[in-house]
Each structure stands twice: as C-alpha cells, then as structure tokens.
Amino acid sequence: MATGATTMTRLRGLVVIVAWLVFVADLQAQAPQRIVSIIPAVTEILFAIGAGPQVVGVGSYDNYPPEIGDLPRVGGLIDPDVEAILALRPNLVVLYITQVDLTTQLTRAGIPLFEYSHGTLADIPTTIRRLGNRTGHAAEADKVALDIEDGLVRIAEAVSRRHRPRTLLVIAREPYSLRNLFASGGSGFQHDMLELAGAKNVLDGTMRRAVQVTTEMILQAAPDVVIEVRTVERLSPAEIEKEMEVWNALPSLPAVQNQNVIFLTGSDLVIPGPRIVQAITRFALVLHPDAPLPTQ
C-alpha cells in the first residue's frame, strides 16, 4: 500500500509538472501584447500588419504612421533609454542586431527580443512575415508581403527594356553645400530601390550601403541623373530651389547640364518598410515618366 501511495503521489507530481510546463509554453507562444519598437521600419510594419494596438512604445525618430503620435518615445539606435523601455513593461522589444549593450541589459531583465538588421530589398517581405508570425498576425503579414512582392514585379516590368540612366542617389549632405555628401553605394536596400526603378547606380562598384563622396568623385562618376532624398516630409519650394542651386558649382556634370538634378522628400524614401513600393515608384516616375507604372 505504501508503495502504491508513493507511486500515485509521484504521478500526481509529474502531472502537475507537465501541466505547468504546458502552461508556460502556451504563455510563451501567445502573441506579445506590449511591444516596444525602436526601429522606424519595424514600427511601420507592425501597424501595417494589424499589430499597432499591441505597440506601447516607439523610437524617438519614428514618425509614421500618424497613430504613433501619442506613444512614449524610448530613444533610438545610438541613444536607447533602457529605463523608459523597462517602465513600459514590454513582453517584446524590437531592436537593432548591433545594439549589443541594450540586448544584454534586456536579456538580463528577461524580456523577449526580436533582433533586426537592414538588409536588401528582398529582405523586407521576409521581415514582415517574421514579425507577423511573432506577433500573432501571420495572415495579415503575408498579405502585406505579397502585395509588396507583386508591386515590385510590376515596377520591374514597367521599366524593363528602357534605357537605364547612370544615377547618383544622394542620401545626406550639409545644407546648402556639397560637403559631407553621402550617396548610396552598391549594396543595401537603397541601391536595390534605385536599380529596380530603372537606373544604373554610378557607385555600384562600391560594395557599401553608403559612401562618402567628394566633388572630384562625383565628377569622375559623371552621373546623367542626380536624385537627392530628404527624410523631412515637406520643404518649401524656395528651400528646395536653394538646395538644388548648390549643384551649379559642378557645371560640367551631365546631370547639371541636362537639368536632371531631382530633389525628393519623404520618409518613405529611406525606410525599408510597407511603403517601399510607393517609394520605388516615385524614383521610377522621375527616371521614366512615360512608363506604365502601377498606381498606389
């Protein structure tokens, strides 16, 4: 009898342990309800796939979609605010894979993480699907990803067999000056955007995402088109004209001679997220205005 009672006691204990393990596993599998995203692209993705109501904090440099306006800000790539993040009691934090110190601190605090890195154009739908699976929105994420993939194919078809102008994509420089100018190199999503829009990146031989270039390098590259992008949503016509006038310092540049210096504004042009088809279409429209491009 004693042996039987002991066996039953052990069995009951085993059942309790198994039930607890199942409960913990279910809890871990549940979609996170308090998400902090430090990354503008990921914040956009979360709202696009229907996970917006689960977001409780965003990066200090996030500005889209408008629904994030009242959410707490928790710093960014260089200046994450650990205390602010912890105060939000998140059960998922999305951060850059390069934020090693932040990863260590949040891991010690027992907070689940989703590590992100900027990749190529092809990585955007993959990231969207991964976030959908992680947040409980797999079906919605797959639809967003499929729409992007379809849009990219339609752009490629629209500009196929057209002349590909040699283009310099400028992503940053000093205001009203050609100093400290950075342009898209031959790798990364911005290079992919430019090429898919029907251009030939004049810096495609430089296998870096961003390249600091001098005026001598620009003259040597001799682009037929210069496209400048700014993250600000709006600049006055006078400000844009003043910014474009700085290129007159290079009168021998083909883009200047042919009046093909183009200035575009908007965060969609620099964020690898759900608006990527819209952004590439904007590039394609200035490169191939008569192409049968998809409408947004």
Rank of each mutant, 00 (worst) to 15 (best):
Q105N: 11
T135K: 04
A255E: 04
D150R: 15
G57V: 02
V93D: 01
F23A: 15
V213Q: 07
Y96D: 07
M217K: 03
N180S: 13
R161C: 13
V100C: 06
I85V: 08
I68N: 01
D224A: 15
A183E: 05
N63W: 02
S184I: 02
S37L: 00
P72C: 04
L168P: 00
E149P: 08
L131Q: 06
V18N: 11
V170E: 08
Y176W: 12
N260G: 05
R108V: 09
E83V: 12
A48T: 04
H191I: 00
D147R: 12
N63S: 07
G119Q: 06
I45T: 05
P251I: 01
N201D: 10
V100H: 10
N248M: 10
A41G: 04
H118D: 12
V22W: 09
D26H: 11
G186V: 08
M193Q: 09
S267K: 02
A210Y: 15
D101K: 09
V277L: 03
R34Q: 04
V22D: 09
I240D: 08
T281N: 04
G136W: 04
F182T: 13
P165V: 10
E245V: 12
G4Y: 08
I68R: 02
F182M: 15
A2G: 10
G273F: 01
S184W: 02
A172Q: 14
I171L: 14
A141K: 09
P237Q: 07
E67L: 14
D204M: 06
Q257L: 09
E216W: 09
F283I: 03
L71C: 02
L253V: 07
D142K: 13
N180Q: 14
S117M: 04
F189L: 08
I45P: 00
Y176P: 08
A199D: 14
G59R: 03
T104R: 13
T104K: 14
A183Y: 04
A138T: 11
L293T: 06
T214C: 06
L178V: 04
Q28Y: 08
R234N: 07
Q54P: 02
I124M: 05
G188A: 11
T104S: 12
V18R: 14
E174L: 10
P125M: 01
I155N: 03
G198K: 13
K200V: 15
V36R: 00
H163A: 11
V256R: 03
A84C: 10
M8W: 09
D147A: 12
M207N: 14
V270L: 09
V286C: 07
T98S: 15
D101L: 11
I128R: 00
H137M: 07
P165N: 10
Y176S: 11
T126S: 09
G50M: 06
R282C: 04
L181K: 07
L293Y: 08
L21N: 05
T3A: 15
G50V: 05
L152M: 12
V229H: 05
L14I: 11
D268N: 05
M244K: 14
A199M: 13
I280W: 00
V55S: 01
L146G: 08
D290K: 14
V256H: 02
I240G: 06
T127M: 07
V144W: 11
I35T: 00
I49F: 04
D26Y: 12
P90I: 04
P254F: 06
